[in-house]
Design a protein around this nucleic acid. Sequence first.
DNA 1: GTTTCAGTTGCGACTGGTTCGCAGCTAATC
DNA 2: GATTAGCTGCGAACCAGTCGCAACTGAAAC
Lengths: 166, 166
Amino acid sequence: MLSSAHVATESQLGRSKTDPAITRPSLMKELAARHIRITAQRRLLVNIIQDSPRHLDAARLLEIARKQDPEIDRATVYRTLALLKDRGLIDELDLMHIEGEKHYYEAKTNRDHCHMACFRCGAIMEYTSSSFEKLKKEMASQSGFQIRVVRLEVGGFCKRCRKSAR
Amino acid sequence: MLSSAHVATESQLGRSKTDPAITRPSLMKELAARHIRITAQRRLLVNIIQDSPRHLDAARLLEIARKQDPEIDRATVYRTLALLKDRGLIDELDLMHIEGEKHYYEAKTNRDHCHMACFRCGAIMEYTSSSFEKLKKEMASQSGFQIRVVRLEVGGFCKRCRKSAR
DNA sequence: GTTTCAGTTGCGACTGGTTCGCAGCTAATC
DNA sequence: GATTAGCTGCGAACCAGTCGCAACTGAAAC
């Protein structure tokens, strides 16, 4: 039984932007289309999230944003993240709490994907596959559950770390 | 293409103990076998976790434990949970942060299972299926990743809530 | 283009879950 | 039963995230 799968290997917490299987629609366009007020702060934050090559947590997002707008506040970052999350425009990840209890965020993709976190080197890999899509469908149909968000996270050791461990 | 799946529906945050697909080995025996010091506090906590019909968070576990040993401390609960988690004897869950940022715990089962959390009524359903097992194998073999922990969580609306919403 | 005001922001104080350092205690080994 | 590594309770500390409020601002209505 065949299925198509795609693994995007990344450097430390980095994320492949050229993965052919994953695309991210424009968050700014989505906000405008939904008549959500566009403020300077939101534009800044949304652009950072959209362009980031890695998964950002709130503190890192604030840090980057402050380079352009030193006045921007923590609360605004948290409120914007909550807004985007509630509207289903970004996904929240725990990445197996590989580095404290913070949350990570990424623009929602056209296709759900799994995150694999290496406990040793901290690399995050993204994994998409038709088996995953099938599992989701199966879960929904067998349980009568209407799925809104799916989070599949895996912790373990990446190929490279397994080799170097010996 | 057929696959065997099993859904355990639960009352509010409760957990079916009679699910035929899931068994939980004795945590106390595991501790003894691994020469981990057995203290009165650990015995108490481990037994509560093992016997609990629902997913417990640290505060609830402390509360239950204090009925038998009013002197037991918060820190001991957190330290014991960390111990069990590090040894791979319990799984940590976020349950989609359906009720604050706390973590939930359950004795590790013979078979991985997914948790489906209803955003409306808070019910948690457990879902096991051979498709899930297959996906895990596929992920490991395609990426070279050695899987240690898997967490598949789903948020949405359960059958009953979907009906009553209309 | 000006007015209007609901919605957004920065601020600082606060919360809730979790962790830490330490002195005293105790389970397991000898 | 003596020894001691390691566990416990305690209180203080930590950290990510939240809240109430007064001032500000984007965009709808004129």
